[in-house]
Each structure stands twice: as C-alpha cells, then as structure tokens.
C-alpha cells in the first residue's frame, strides 16, 4: 500500500516536473487546466479541475487577472491533455473596460479560440451557451447579478458538460458567505511584486502559497 502511494506520488512529481506536460492528474477522470507557474500549479495539485465551478477573489487592477490569461493560454494553445485546443469565453459585466486583445495574445492566448461578450446577467443572456458544451472554459468577470441558484445552475452544467467555469470577483472572498456550489474558492493578493494565493474552500482550504507571475523574457522570444 505504502509502495503504491509512493509510486503514485513519484509519478505525480515526475509529471509536474516535466514542463511540456501541462496537465498533471493521477485521476484519469479529472482533467486539469494549469497555468504554467510551477508554484501555483503545485499548489493547485496540477491545476483547476474541469467539470467544476471555481470562484476567485481578485481586486481589479492588482495584476492577478494575468493568471486567467495564462489559464486561457493553456486552454486555447493546445497544452492540455491530448493537445486539445479549447474554445473559451470571457463574459464581462464592466461597462467601462474592454479586453486589450494584443496583450492577451502576447500572454499566449489564441485569439481565434477566444470569444468575448458583455453581459450583466450572463445566465439570462447566455443560457444556451452554458447548456451546450462548445465552450470548455468560461470566465465570468465581475458578474453583477449572480444568485446562488445561478451558481447551482453553473455548477450542474459545468459537471455535465465537463466545463471549467470561473467566477472572478473584484473583492476578496469571505469564508462566511461561502458559495457552496463552487468546488474551489481562492483569494489572490499582491504584495511587493509577489502574489499570495489563499484557498478559502475545497481540498486546499486555508492553505496558502506565494508565487511571481513571470513576464516573458525578450531573449526567449527570439526578437
């Protein structure tokens, strides 16, 4: 039994250490989406799990939304298991801000597989998208009108369609007002150039990790 556990752990370590394999999971039924930052992927035990709803507290402007760009880069760029490229959807409720696509592209996102829309009520407006499995990764950025029933709906369809649905909030999440439908909940803070992620709910609850979001090296880009 001990040997089996060690072998399992070793194989997981081996998978994580190989930078080419971006999906590391010992459970063949659980496909994960990683972001390519080693400390964060290790903290997340390989990445965010498909078929789940995940909620993140990231104040707008602290720079941590770049993590989402990295997750989408993995999803659209074919670095998940089986080299599959996924269609991704970003839904924003911000009336005064839009994505700046070249920056997302520079972060690695394939713009051809990314769609964007503005909606304050995503469940009402985009219901047919959640029911369909076309978009494998959906990010709801600061949705204004999202009730617990809506989160239940999202969670059910994420499971059914094997999607990853991420809700981003502009304020830190509290464990007291927990969203029971989100399998994982995280807060990301920034201090002195480094980021700290704290798990509010899930298997990693109350654990923390720090990491830096890398800026691509110009030398590596062969300019």
């Amino acid at each position: 039994m001990k040997t089996a556990c060690l072998a399992k752990e070793e194989s997981r370590q081996l998978l994580l250490s190989d930078s080419r394999i971006r999906t590391a999971s010992t459970n063949p039924m659980e496909v994960k989406l990683c972001c390519g930052i080693r400390e964060l992927d290790e903290f997340l035990h390989g990445g965010l799990t498909f078929s789940t709803l995940s909620e993140w507290g990231i104040p707008f402007g602290n720079g941590a939304r770049r993590l989402m760009a990295l997750f989408l880069a993995t999803a659209t760029g074919g670095a998940t298991a089986g080299d599959q490229k996924h269609w991704c959807l970003w839904v924003s409720a911000r009336p005064h801000h839009s994505l700046y696509p070249p920056a997302w592209s520079a972060a690695g996102v394939d713009l051809h597989r990314l769609r964007y829309c503005q909606s304050k009520a995503p469940i009402k407006d985009l219901r047919s998208l959640f029911i369909d499995d076309f978009f494998r990764v959906i990010v709801l950025d600061a949705p204004a009108e999202l009730t617990l029933e809506d989160c239940c709906f999202l969670s059910q369809h994420a499971r059914r369609n094997r999607q990853l649905i991420i809700i981003l909030r502009d304020q830190f999440l509290l464990s007291s007002n927990h969203n029971v439908w989100a399998r994982s909940r995280f807060n990301v803070k920034r201090e002195k150039g480094r980021y700290e992620i704290e798990a509010i709910r899930g298997a990693l609850s109350k654990s923390k990790a720090t990491f830096a979001i890398p800026v691509p090296n110009l030398k590596n880009l062969n300019l």
Binding site: R65, R66, A69, A73, T76, G77, R94, P95, H96, H97, S98, L99, Y100, P102, A103, W104, S105, A106, A107, G108, V109, D110, L111, H112, V215, P216, L218, L221, N222, L223
Partner: peptide, 27 residues
C-alpha cells in the same frame, strides 16, 4: 491557420509593445 506553431499572431516587431500594455483598456 488552425495549426499555428505559436498562438502569438501579432508581428514580432509589435510583440514588445503588447507585453508592456495592460490586459484591460478603458473605453
């Protein structure tokens, strides 16, 4: 191009500029 070698499509001469710019712009 469905099988681009790299997901980064913009001309390389603009890549540096895009790296310096933010993810969100104000309307």
């Amino acid at each position: 191009s469905e099988s681009a070698d790299s997901p980064i499509d913009s001309p390389k001469s603009y890549l540096f500029q895009h790296l310096c710019r933010p993810l969100f712009i104000q309307n």
